[in-house]
Amino acid sequence: DETGKFLVLALYDYQEKSPREVTAKKGDILTLLNSTNKDWWKVEVNGRQGFVPAAYVKFL
């Protein structure tokens, strides 16, 4: 159920650099879980949760 969740689009490829991050490919649609940090947003992609740089994604 996606009610109340926001989707964001990956603008660039991002390769995770730590276990707390997730890899995303340009064009991926990610479920935004938390955007309270202006630099790192928590997302879910391909069943995995983790952080990506906020500058790499935008709201749909």
Score class of each variant (00 low, 15 high):
Leu7Met: 10
Gly47Ser: 05
Asp28Glu: 12
Gly47Ala: 03
Val52Gly: 02
Ala10Ile: 15
Phe6Gln: 12
Leu33Phe: 02
Lys38Phe: 06
Tyr12Pro: 00
Thr36Asn: 12
Asn46Phe: 07
Val45Ile: 15
Thr3Met: 12
Ile29Trp: 06
Asp28Phe: 07
Glu16Leu: 05
Lys58Tyr: 09
Ser35Glu: 06
Phe51Gly: 01
Tyr14His: 03
Leu11Glu: 02
Pro53Leu: 12
Val43Thr: 00
Tyr12Glu: 09
Ala24Gly: 04
Thr23Trp: 04
Val45Thr: 08
Lys5Asp: 08
Lys38Leu: 08
Asn46Thr: 03
Tyr12Leu: 09
Leu11His: 01
Asn34Asp: 15
Ala55Pro: 05
Thr3Cys: 15
Leu32His: 02
Gly27Gln: 03
Leu30Ser: 01
Glu44Val: 05
Glu16Gln: 13
Glu44Trp: 05
Lys26Asn: 05
Ala54His: 02
Asp39Val: 13
Gly50Gln: 01
Ala55Glu: 10
Arg20Trp: 15
Tyr56Ser: 13
Gly47Trp: 05
Gly47Met: 04
Val45Trp: 05
Lys5Ile: 13
Pro53Phe: 14
Arg20Ala: 12
Leu32Met: 04
Glu2Trp: 13
Val43Trp: 01
Glu44Asp: 07
Asn37Ala: 06
Tyr56Arg: 02
Leu60Tyr: 09
Tyr14Glu: 02
Lys26Thr: 07
Lys5Trp: 12
Lys5Val: 12
Pro53Gly: 06
Phe51Trp: 14
Tyr12Phe: 13
Val22Thr: 04
Tyr12Arg: 11
Leu60Trp: 09
Thr31Met: 12
Glu21Gly: 13
Lys58Val: 14
Phe6Trp: 14
Asp13Trp: 09
Gly50Arg: 00
Gly50Val: 05
Asn34Cys: 13
Thr3Ala: 12
Val8Gln: 01
Val52Lys: 01
Glu16Tyr: 03
Asn34Met: 07
Phe51Ala: 01
Val52Trp: 05
Lys26Arg: 10
Gly4Phe: 12
Phe51Asp: 01
Val8Ala: 05
Leu11Gln: 04
Arg20Gly: 15
Val8Ile: 08
Arg20Met: 13
Phe59Tyr: 10
Lys38Gly: 10
Leu32Ile: 09
Thr31Ala: 07
Ala55Trp: 12
Glu44Pro: 00
Leu30Trp: 03
Phe51Ile: 05
